[in-house]
Design a protein around this nucleic acid. Sequence first.
DNA 1: TTTCTCACA
DNA 2: TGTGAGAA
Length: 126
Amino acid sequence: MKEKELRRSLAVLPIGTVMKLTDLSARQIRYYEEQALITPERNAGNRRMFSLNDIDRLLEIKDFLADGINMAGIKEIYARQKQRAEQKQADLAKPLTDRDVRRILHDEFLNLGGLQSDKGPNYPAR
DNA sequence: TTTCTCACA
DNA sequence: TGTGAGAA
């Protein structure tokens, strides 16, 4: 029953609503789109129409930023997320060994640390 | 009225 | 990222 997923992907929200829902400025929302972090549809009059999935995505991005991760980092996270999705398919045929899993988790931690932005506007001087 | 794109003292 | 201009 993936009826819900379809509805969540229906782009029906104008940027104004998204601004209120995510507490982000139109500027930021458009910028994130430029960075390919979100891909809202376009409707009549070239207006952006967002879906519930976009909202979740935006909120997620907000959290990442709050954790001190920068655009590049977030892009990587989604890039890896995509890779994982693709890897998952391959893994279906060839399951990972315990040793592989450990190595992957190890890398994950190291990389997450590298994604922390080196003191930016997200690091209050307090 | 709302949103879009573009450009910057 | 903010902000203002000019158009739709």
